[in-house]
Each structure stands twice: as structure tokens, then as C-alpha cells.
Nucleic acid binder design. Structure first.
Lengths: 112, 112
DNA sequence: ATATATACCTAAGTATCTTAGGTATGTTAG
DNA sequence: CTAACATACCTAAGATACTTAGGTATATAT
């Protein structure tokens, strides 16, 4: 990731959401897509990404399909059924988190 | 914190913002205030809070004032000048983070 | 020929949290 | 009156998720 420590813990959610949206993606593609969407403000480093993908796979949330394109290996990941459920939960948790952070940071409560 | 890994890295920002708003606060007060604001959805544990306060103080962002109330010690923390600047930066980083996460999670980009 | 892009990977170190304690005083319920 | 809960501080061990810094290999552009 880039600069901010805030991103800690959100990588899995990002991966799951991208896969939900795109159907299947390979690792390098994910790094590029995040760069593109966030206009280079957020970079998923490979040192964080690959272990995260392997863990999500080990937990049964992702499955892999290996392909060979231009003489190079690609590992396409897609959500399992459990992964789809997990994605829903993670997105709900993200919404809660953002709502809570906004409540903490927007000073409405200071008028109490 | 509570349940979600998303909160990792956001504790310092929460502390700084609360102190900016309230002027001065003591540790236990911070834990209660966060519970109150987030309607018990987010709990700052003392095991995370006190080391974080000590670190922010060591970094020169907070200064301490010890008081005795009802025969119990309270350590009031408030922002230094450097702490005020840091708070501005952390809040900007939080806004960036939230904006980026919303862009990643809101599927506008999937229409491309 | 060299750098950059694509594409995978791991290991050591760092940071931030959780969990699980510890100390001590004040207050409330049975 | 005593036991539980609230207030108020603290630390240490362990878990986890990153960053940093490598490594391998092929394709393409300068």
C-alpha cells in the first residue's frame, strides 16, 4: 500500500470486491486495477497481495485457475460460494467502519 | 477495537481528532467517548490506547498534565503545536482513504 | 544492451492491534 | 458488608498484516 497506515486490514475486502465485480482476475491485474481506480493514490504491493491471495484461497474463499498467456503464467482467482458470502459480510463491515469513522471525525457530537 | 480488522491504523487519527475537538481528555474518557459516539459499535481497548498515547507523546504530538480527582490519578492529554499540524494531515489522509475505498467498492468503474 | 513492463513468488522486519493480565480507589446492589 | 462493577492507570506476549527488499522469468521498447 501507499503511505497511510489506514489501509491496514482493508486489502482482503478490496480483493474480494474486485473479484465479485470482475468475475475473475489475476494478481498483477489486481495491482493495476487498484492503481487505475484510485488514480495511483493507492498501490497494492505484491508483497502484500500474493500472501493475501494465498490465504483467502486456503480459507476457501477463492479458487484458482492457471492459464498460460504469451508464454507467461497467470493465476486467475475467482470467488467460491463461501467467498461470495464473505464478500457481502466484509462490505457490510466496511460500511460500518466508514460510518463510524465519519461520526468520530464529523464534529456534530461536540455540540452535546 | 471490536471485530473488524479495518480499524487497524486509525486509532491515532481518532485520538488526535477527539483531542482537537475537546481540548484535553484523559485515557479512560477517550474509551468512553468512542463507545458513546459509535453507539458501542467501536471499542478502543486500553491495551491499544495507552501505548498509543505514550507513543504520540514521545513523538511530540501530545503533552500531559496530571490531575488528582476523587483520590484517583488522571492524565490529561492535549495537542502540541506539532500535534495540531499532524491532526490536520491525518484527517486529510483519512478523507483520501475513505474516498479511495468508496471508489473501489462502488461499482461505477465496472461499466468501463 | 538496458530498462521497463508483465507475472509470479518469499522472507525478514515493523507496526498495530488483541488478549490477558496487574494495581488501586469509588460506588452500587443484595 | 461484601461482592460486583465502574473508574483509572499500566504492561507483556502473541497474532496479524503490512513494508521492504529481495528472487525468477519472459516480452517489449529505447
Amino acid at each position: 500500500m501507499r503511505n497511510s497506515k489506514l489501509y491496514k486490514g482493508s486489502l482482503n475486502t478490496i480483493i474480494l470486491k474486485l473479484l465479485e465485480e470482475k468475475g475473475k482476475m489475476y494478481g498483477y491485474e489486481i495491482t493495476q486495477k487498484v492503481k487505475e481506480i484510485t488514480k495511483d493514490e493507492l498501490r497494492v504491493t505484491e508483497g502484500a497481495l500474493y500472501p493475501a491471495l494465498h490465504k483467502l484461497e486456503a480459507e476457501g474463499f477463492l479458487e484458482v485457475e492457471v492459464a498460460k498467456v504469451d508464454n507467461r503464467i497467470r493465476k486467475y482467482y475467482k470467488l467460491t460460494e463461501a467467498g461470495e458470502k464473505e464478500t457481502v459480510n466484509r462490505l457490510l463491515a466496511l460500511e460500518d467502519f466508514i460510518r463510524n469513522m465519519q461520526q468520530l471525525v464529523n464534529p456534530k457530537w461536540s455540540l452535546e
